[in-house]
């Protein structure tokens, strides 16, 4: 086979991903058709967009010359709410996640507990924060308490899943060694698992803190308190300079949380 080809001495690059040309063409053609259909289904009111460009420009101006003053009280109240929700929900989330995470680890938990914890995790993870917030606002009324519950619920799914995976990834030799000393289940968790998982748990909690702050600035849009509500109001009233100020504050806090959490994580490991 190769002999024939080398004697011809031509060379074309072999396809990188899809080796079978039929598959390649089907997927290429399919994507092209999809793109045409998808783009044609987007109805755009170009006049409205054109009008909006001016407003967009105003927003950019507002972003560049933010107005921190005129709505400062609202912004401050929103921020305090957001930060409170972030901290309390992360703390509550971690506290509840630890037992659920242990329960969802196959190497530690008995089958029924494992199934129960896993389904709890799946439930928490399949709905995003906003949807949970809508339901909880309907039940608990407007305000940060619904937001706190939302973020706690979301944190549980996130933290328990990753924690369970960590525990399952633990060095089984260490667990066996502790078990061999005649330690009970609780002692095994305390000695063999905790020491291995602790740094990761700290890292995950900080990471979740970061996510919770970002989310806390959003769920206000559906009435769950925090700076999102303030932002929503500002945009509704076309107060782009105040909106710009809020966005800048959010970006700044996200940056601070992200950098300090990555710093602490490195320090913890």
């Amino acid at each position: 086979m190769t002999g024939a080809i080398t004697s011809l001495r031509t060379w074309k690059r072999p396809p990188v991903l899809l080796k079978d040309p039929r598959w390649r063409w089907t997927i290429l053609l399919g994507s092209a058709i999809y793109l045409v259909l998808a783009i044609s289904s987007v109805e755009v009111n170009w006049f409205r967009v054109y009008e909006g460009l001016e407003r967009g420009w105003k927003f950019i101006q507002g972003f560049l010359s933010p107005d921190f003053n005129s709505r400062w009280r609202d912004i401050q109240a929103g921020l305090v709410e957001s930060l409170t929700m972030t901290l309390t929900s992360t703390a509550a989330g971690v506290l509840i996640s630890v037992p659920i995470g242990i329960g969802a680890a196959r190497n530690l938990a008995p089958a029924p507990v494992y199934m129960f914890c896993r389904s709890l995790i799946t439930l928490s993870r399949s709905f995003q924060e906003i949807i949970i917030a809508i339901l909880l606002v309907a039940m608990f009324g407007f305000g940060p308490f619904a937001g706190f519950l939302t973020l706690t619920f979301a944190s549980i799914g996130f933290l328990s899943k990753l924690l369970a995976e960590d525990i399952e990834g633990c060095d089984s030799a260490q667990i066996e060694a502790i078990r061999a000393t005649g330690a009970g289940w609780w002692q095994v968790v305390n000695y063999a698992v905790q020491s291995q998982v602790m740094p990761r748990l700290i890292g995950l909690s900080l990471y979740r803190l970061d996510i919770n702050f970002r989310e806390s600035s959003v769920i206000g849009i559906v009435g769950a308190g925090g700076v999102g509500a303030t932002l929503n109001t500002a945009i509704d009233r076309y107060e782009y300079d105040s909106a710009g100020a809020i966005l800048i504050i959010i970006i700044a806090i996200v940056l601070v949380v992200e950098y300090s959490s990555s710093y602490i994580r490195r320090w913890a490991q």
Partner: peptide, 16 residues
């Protein structure tokens, strides 16, 4: 990846 034929010939020769 469309190299002149002389380059391809040379590459085959070198691999040989």
């Amino acid at each position: 990846r469309r190299y002149p034929q002389t380059d391809i010939d040379q590459a085959f020769g070198l691999l040989e």
